[in-house]
Amino acid sequence: MSLALARRRTSPAQTGVRYGPVVVAAIAFALPIFWLLVTSLKKQSEYGSALFPSVLQWANYELAVELADFGHFATNSLVLSTAYALLAVLVSALVGYGFARHSAPGRGKLFMLVIATWMVPNLVLFVPQFVLFARLGLTNTYWPWILWGLSGSPFAIFLFRQFFASFPRELDDAAEVDGAGPLRIFLQIYMPNAGPAIAASAIFMFLWVWGDWLYPALLLRQDNTTLAVRMANAYLDPHGNPLQTVTMAGVALYVLPLIAFFAFAQRFIVRGIVTTGIKG
């Protein structure tokens, strides 16, 4: 078949080539999540004996909420994630603006330092931080996350720096003529136009805390820890036997809000990354 023909009309074979792999890949990606939902709706006695639930057990979801004090841990997670995301985004935007728009000796080197801290293995940094927080009596509190938030995130600083660097300089000049200081320019001109970068970085910052298991497991205690730590333990019956079905319902409740949110917000994320231009 000639090229010209092929372009005019797609044959069934070409449709197959175009859609086959992507459909197969999508099924492969979705199957584990699908199985999570299937399992979460089975009766516990059906686990391991029946492939699919005979009657959908929505009660598993109620049990998942009741048995684990789910609301309590979800609130902890929500509070901690939101607080960190708000602080980190605001500070990172400010710092990114500084790097993008104000020059001073040592700026290039300092920016390399931002990138460098991004590359230090997590645990290398965390172990001494852990000792530090311990000595300051800040373990078992949310202070570590507040402090992390207040110092910004290297990733988000990078993102905002790239994003703001693409803004036309004339914006600043006009504002400066009006007598606006750098902070006002940042708040009134840069931030309102940074929607995609704010959305993308806020989502990532939020997700980092919502999903993190290690730090809350080591820094917090049972009563103030996050949902991630609680969800790491299976739901058990009174004999200590695992309830896989209820556990999966709990896990589903833990991730479904994120999934719903992302299905809605993913174009922002893509746009945020595209407009930022990872290539620098």
Partner: peptide, 27 residues
């Protein structure tokens, strides 16, 4: 969008501030 963002931000800040302050007290 800006208004929504600012409104949401203020709401979130208010919602978050109280428990955060409480949780920041070392047990």
């Amino acid at each position: 969008r800006r208004e929504v963002l600012i409104g949401a931000g203020a709401l979130a800040a208010a919602a978050v501030a109280a428990p955060i302050l409480a949780a920041c007290q070392p047990a």
